[in-house]
Design a binder for these strands. Sequence first.
DNA 1: ACGACTTAATTCACGCTATTATTAAAGCCC
DNA 2: GGGCTTTAATAATAGCGTGAATTAAGTCGT
Lengths: 405, 405
Amino acid sequence: MQLERATNRTLRRRNRSVLLAKVFLDGPLARQDLATSTGLSQAAVSNVVGDLIEDGLVTEAGTVESDGGRPRTMLQVAPRFALVVGVDVGETRVRVELFDLAMTPLATVDYPINPGQPDPETVVAHIFAGLSYVTGAAAVSTADILGVGIGVSGVVEQGRQAVVHAQTLGWEGVELERMLRAGTDLPLHLDNGAKTLGQAEMWFGAGRGARHAVFALIGSGVGAAVVTGGVTYRGASSSAGEWGHTTLCYDGRPCRCGARGCLEAYVGAGAIIDRYRDARRGRAVPGADEESQITTLLAQAGSSAAARRVLDETASYLGAGVANLINLFNPERVVLGGWAGVALGAHLLPAIRRAAAAHALRQPFAQASIELCRLGVDAVALGAATLPIARLLTAGGIREPSKIH
Amino acid sequence: MQLERATNRTLRRRNRSVLLAKVFLDGPLARQDLATSTGLSQAAVSNVVGDLIEDGLVTEAGTVESDGGRPRTMLQVAPRFALVVGVDVGETRVRVELFDLAMTPLATVDYPINPGQPDPETVVAHIFAGLSYVTGAAAVSTADILGVGIGVSGVVEQGRQAVVHAQTLGWEGVELERMLRAGTDLPLHLDNGAKTLGQAEMWFGAGRGARHAVFALIGSGVGAAVVTGGVTYRGASSSAGEWGHTTLCYDGRPCRCGARGCLEAYVGAGAIIDRYRDARRGRAVPGADEESQITTLLAQAGSSAAARRVLDETASYLGAGVANLINLFNPERVVLGGWAGVALGAHLLPAIRRAAAAHALRQPFAQASIELCRLGVDAVALGAATLPIARLLTAGGIREPSKIH
DNA sequence: ACGACTTAATTCACGCTATTATTAAAGCCC
DNA sequence: GGGCTTTAATAATAGCGTGAATTAAGTCGT
């Protein structure tokens, strides 16, 4: 039950938002398209679009020939109306990327961090360094930056100031937003990295067109982003979707979170490698890091029965975990992502589908397709960059929240 | 991203909806209260309330004395503006209940059904019989009935016409809505029984005030209703929340759904009784039906170590299951309900909380309280009856969708 | 009993917004 | 160039919420 009053300005802001979002997401469109697809009258569309053009948010982008009649002028979001920055705070590196509103990457920089429990201060310093690097490299002014989105691989607790709990980074209640705000006046949007990746796939990847989707991400950690009604599901404190630490096997293998039987203790990259090592009677899996060890495992599937068994089991566990998501969230689409998810999914997707079918209820399973992601792992920064844009769109392109005359 | 245009009438409808919902849910309120709590101007409130009174939706309900000043006149939803019917299609009976808009029960009737796979036709006949019985008993006209809400213990797939998949009833793709529409012109609202119960608890019970809550229901079956942002989470085809058939114990006990290791196979009433029988080395648990057998188990906890062990295990499994809900949905409240849930919860709640704490991530667990429901099991019909009301409230009290002059 | 004071509800001019109908613009085709 | 088609802008109209002023309905002190 919504309890927001509606005033006359609300109306305009909302229609601005509807039109702006449509132009942004569905590419160049004519005023007519907007009128028919939104149901607004042509007059209103013209009126609102006029405002948007005047505000510099939208530009006319050429005309399209017609078969007898005035050619329709196409509209698009002005790519340079503003710039956005996406930051990916992963377990092994901090990536800072600058985009324009057409989501063209203008500059990118990576800062590797040593995996052993990076200092929050170091990460913050990397972010600031990255900010000044990308603005310098693209020769743009900070004033043109609409906002900075930051995807962190851990629980991001939204409150007045976002706080990060990331067991994999060794962070417990790190006041990342406060630390960042101390060094910049740019609008900040912190969020869980899985959620930003889901956002990216939703707008530009495998989630397009779906209203209810779950993005299941397998990497060193295991997480999920749930989108419902086109909007990321957050829950009370924005930590919803912690799929990796749901119990799949009561009293089972110990997990690094301290509990037993978590999904991550079976299908997290580390867990898969551990299980393969066990299957090899304790002989270490060749490879410098988890990523190459997983590659080894997949490469040996042709020759080693043990590797095949480990992969089969992985698909079964993963399928059961996906079935849980399907039963609980009833999505129309489950998208498998994360670096390990992509590596495994390419080979195991049919087996995962079979296992999910065996564990999920028929009706919700029949509603859901299970697919691979389309954007790759680096989309965390892209998705983070969409956060300030999402805010701009819902606000109807009005940057200042309120003004006092 | 919402894509609904907003027109001038939308505004009024929305404000009608906001005010009407507030008056309905937060009891008698003065116009002033409405103005301050919604942010609308007093003039607008007066204006809209005037319309609502004229339409017969709202009535003035006396005045409240003041210490110097005009006394405020309180407003309430007119209890007899319309009547609603709630139907509970359970595994053992069909209940039909008639309410006014103050949710006062005006008439109730139960039709027992023999547990062995009841015929859909029989259930439909019971519903029609119940409808004519309650209208007769309360001496009201069918024309005064706003709508009929029907809570079914099974998956209700919403489409053009709701279809029911209820393994416990032996129903597979039963076109219940079509069958009902053939016999009545009343607006129908079919939904899963757990969801209607959650709705009832949300409006009148343990969920009041929460924006994100999960209602975990334990009976013969195990299910959950998820409320997010004050609204029931449905997913793509409205079957979200099938908690009972999530895998808790990979490759564990067989479940009646065909899979193995489902939560229901551990904490469903039948499963608990089975586990107790196993603990008694196969000796049947005394009791005529599941309900009395569970009572027996609880009664013997004082004397029998086996009973205690079974209950402890139940609390642990249940806690792990609740932890999964907390990790995935990040609610501020988890409400334990269902007849078995109530019976067990009274004794096991502390143990369940401990087990949930052990399995959930710290941060989301700290955000969530775990409580018992307040309304009892019979609230399914009450919750079903709220469905037509919820529609009325969101529509701002406008019954006909559109009129042609 | 009367006036001062307080609080609640209504009225009305105003500005904002979308709608429908109408007009202008811009091109194609014969 | 005139007729036709499609797109965009303009004008007249009506709905809606706001804010200030006004009316309504009491309490309290003297």
